[in-house]
Design a protein around this nucleic acid. Structure first.
Lengths: 337, 337
DNA sequence: TTGTAAGCGTTATCAG
DNA sequence: CTGATAACGCTTACAA
């Protein structure tokens, strides 16, 4: 194992100069710095993590707590984990997984042992027990998602309410007066916060714009497209020609299949908007207007806030809502006849 | 932050006694030990991770490298990550995620900086570049999966070849002489090792038992069940009444749907075995005989091997194949007529 | 611009 | 069975 001593010796300087040259925390003359960097590279020097933690009181590790419930949508979840890991790595941090059933135990443990510099919280529930922990530990904690009680917490999330407004506005602007929202599973509206926020955004704006709204929850299993199909068919029978979909890809597929069977062309006879979809809607058979979920943005901002909390003195806790973006693909049209 | 000093003071002993009492690495009298444990609990003492690493040369962290390619099946992947994290935690280890595109960089980094005690490798490719890294670093490395060149590596995996044998044997024993294997995506047979191993197991045993075998790869997208359906229909037309399925749940659903449409009852008119399925086959509409993938077993064994490598002196590298298990559900029957 | 040296909080070696 | 104490490898005042 190469130590800082050996690098110092090879470069003919003291160990503190090596430390400063590599961390950049003190100006070092160009020629000695290059000499040090060369020596470090040649020797394959990498600072000992333990020593660095102990002396520097920085671990360069973030914890990521993810409860992983049975109803977790795996691809979405993975996208968030990956996005977090990538963003963290770009800032020089590694990710420590906390998948305990009782995430609380893990949070307390890593905080008490100074194992991590900050904690990132994923898959936030309305009454998330991790909110209380976050308030009680000294370790900076960032929520990706929003619990009911946000007092004193730093949270990051897509503005699902605004996404709901946006979707209704586009359909209302096009002239629709009746809209059906194909929503998440029933349990999702209890276990998570964001489906409700989108729902309320849609409901409120529908009320304001005088749009009649139907809201349908979709089946729990990806395998039973049947219920989605019949719900869509019923809506069409009633003359509905505008859909907002906030659901997994299978639900999108089921809806599009029904529309095609009925000979209804999307963006022509019928309007469809996909809101906060976690998968790539470009894989669908028809181009669909989308309000994307962008895990990258949320996770990058979360990592950014964590770093800021470590580097700056008084960063105050608040909720950061990311404004939704509307990606047009021609799937919204004025109602026919 | 509570230190070992404060615990020692509170318990009226020296810090070394505290260390030994809590680690159990030296006998400590019952009464002083309880006094120490009480003090530690009351003060909420948790050893400082950095100090522990530096002094003890043990980090109590395992790295988990996961390349996360675009074609990764998210639910399966998550099951493995979760199983690893749970198993590791049970032994007192945390998991550090290494999701770099170039996993090699991460492995070298955590090894050189002594950030982790061992490295666990997931989602192993046939020509995995991480095999070379594993051989070059001092950090013990365990593969969950098997690359082509296993020389000097410690690997853990389900015995997919034996699983293939088992599946064919059951069908041949029941009297079937023609079998269709509904396999993974085409790309999976190039990117991963295990689909090939199952395929070869099936092919070899089919040859031995005089069973005529068809092998079909399935579509890349979960949304196009159509190709699976037509393949299944073609097989049925040709009189095939025995299927081995090594694929995602959608493929199972598509096959079962076709069978039902044709009025073929599973376990009666037609035989179906699901091999190495990563999802819960109990959610399917019909009970299916299964050779389960058991991520828990692989991951537990991997963690176990890692711990053993740290605690024992000479554990020699080798491949550990987990024998497949057959779970009957009545979906295999003798061919009719 | 560079060097010296005092910790950081444990573990583990030596004594007792 | 218990106590001192020397590492562990680095960061960061404090000096020069």
């Amino acid at each position: 194992m190469t130590t800082i001593h050996e690098v110092a010796q090879a470069a003919g300087v003291s160990i503190s100069t090596v430390s400063y040259a590599l961390s950049g925390k003190r100006p070092v003359s160009d020629k000695t710095r290059t000499r040090i960097e060369d020596a470090a590279r040649v020797l394959g020097y990498e600072p000992d993590a333990g020593a660095r933690m102990l002396a520097g009181r920085r671990t360069h590790i973030f914890a990521l707590t993810e409860p992983l419930r049975a109803d977790t949508h795996a691809p979405t979840h993975m996208a968030f984990v990956l996005a977090t890991a990538v963003a963290a790595r770009r800032r020089g941090y590694d990710i420590l997984l906390l998948t305990d059933e009782q995430a609380s135990e893990g949070m307390n443990r890593v905080a008490a042992s100074n194992l991590v510099d900050a904690i990132l919280v994923l898959d936030v529930a309305p009454d998330d027990e991790r909110a209380a922990i976050a308030r009680s530990v000294r370790t900076p904690t960032i929520f990706i998602g929003i619990p009911d009680d946000q007092e004193g917490l730093t949270c990051v999330d897509l503005d699902f309410g605004a996404a709901g407004h946006l979707a209704v506005d586009r359909l209302a602007d096009a002239g629709h007066t009746r809209v059906t929202l194909l929503g998440q599973t029933e349990v999702a509206y209890r276990r998570s916060n964001f489906p409700r926020r989108l729902l309320h955004g849609v409901q409120d704006r529908a009320l304001e714009r005088g749009v009649a709204l139907d809201w349908i929850t979709t089946g729990a299993s990806a395998t039973d497209a049947a219920s989605v199909r019949s719900a869509a068919e019923a809506a069409i029978e009633r003359g509905i020609r505008a859909f907002i979909v906030h659901a997994v890809d299978d639900v999108h597929v089921a809806l599009l299949t029904v529309l095609e069977e009925r000979g209804l062309r999307v963006g022509d006879d019928v309007s469809v908007i996909s809101a906060a979809a976690s998968f790539d809607t470009a894989t669908l058979s028809v181009p669909i207007d989308t309000i994307p979920l962008v895990p990258q943005q949320s996770c990058e901002l979360a990592v950014d806030l964590a770093v800021r909390r470590l580097e700056e003195a008084n960063v105050q806790a608040r909720v950061h809502l990311i404004p939704p973006e509307y990606r047009s693909a021609g799937s919204v049209a004025a109602p026919q006849g």
